[in-house]
Write a protein that binds this DNA or RNA. Structure first.
Length: 270
DNA sequence: CTGGTCACCTGGAAGC
DNA sequence: TGCTTCCAGGTGACCA
């Protein structure tokens, strides 16, 4: 589920509530997600005030005086703030208990990650190789044009490579290329400067729209029982195979690119 | 380095 | 109804 906007919305939802508060206990109900959980997390964090919550790509960074807890939601993870006494569900693998509230990690597929770094989190082997932040000022058409030179791979999987650009998952890759009017199969290295500019503008607009949509439901999914899941976006093409394009009415087509389902409008995208 | 494939895990939907 | 198969929003590891 989570792509960059979902992770960022989660972060923004927690920001006014958690930093400054002390962790009282940690409850780990599963020994490992994608990786084994850090050992003795309770001893490590009990009594420690959370200093801040940052984000790098889709990784959330919980800052403490003596290190950083790195958290990734994987494909199916979500964080909720619940009453600490609330009984955990089947896939609620980890609680960080702040007084009478718990920050609860639910992740049915367990593709998420929880890691502890004592030193500079930016130097962690999973963080250091991450690519550019798509919402940063440094992400421009010129940057994308430079980055794509000499690359034969299709632009869609290229955009999803977190070592190039972070945060663009399967949904927003299709959606952004639709907005840009670019065929997802186009070899990255063949894109003109102008088309790179269109793609960058489209990515920022797509992510901004998702952030705006998430902001309006933020309170719900941070505090409620989570049954509503992630906020719903009106997609242009994603998941709409055979349905009419919202712009031109042509049938939306599906294909596979790099093992991932890809949606596009053959009339609007070239 | 590049591009392509696989695996990790569970659950829901579709097919028979 | 029940069993089987396929698919899912991520990404690191591995291969040629």
């Amino acid at each position: 589920m989570p792509e960059l906007p979902e992770v960022e919305i989660t972060r923004r939802g927690l920001l006014p509530k958690l930093p400054g508060r002390k962790i009282h206990a940690v409850v780990a109900r599963h020994a490992a997600l994608r990786y084994p959980l850090p050992r003795a997390l309770g001893r490590l964090l009990a009594g420690q005030p959370l200093r801040g919550i940052d984000r790098r790509g889709k990784y959330l960074l919980f800052r403490f005086d003596h290190g950083t807890l790195i958290l990734h939601l994987g494909m199916s993870g979500s964080l909720r703030l619940v009453p600490a006494a609330e009984p955990p569900g089947k896939h609620d693998h980890l609680d960080l208990v702040f007084g009478d509230q718990a920050l609860r990690l639910c992740d049915p597929r367990r593709f998420g990650a929880v890691l502890w770094v004592k030193d500079d989190a930016a130097a962690h082997p999973l963080i250091a190789p991450l690519g550019i932040e798509p919402l940063s000022a440094a992400f421009t058409g010129e940057w994308l044009h430079d980055a794509t030179r000499g690359r034969a791979t299709a632009i869609k999987p290229f955009l999803m490579d977190s070592h190039v650009i972070v945060g663009i998952g399967n949904i927003y890759a299709s959606e952004s290329l639709f907005r840009a009017g670019v065929d997802p199969r186009t070899p990255a290295g063949r894109l003109s400067r102008k088309r790179c500019e269109r793609i960058v503008t489209a990515i920022k607009a797509t992510l901004d729209a998702a952030l705006a949509a998430g902001g309006s439901t933020l309170r719900d999914f941070i505090q409620s029982d989570g049954s509503t899941g992630w906020f719903q976006q009106q997609h242009f093409v994603y998941g709409r195979e055979g349905e009419p394009c919202r712009v031109c009415g042509a049938r939306v087509r599906a294909l596979r690119l790099g093992q991932r389902s890809t949606f596009h409008c053959p009339h609007c995208q070239h």
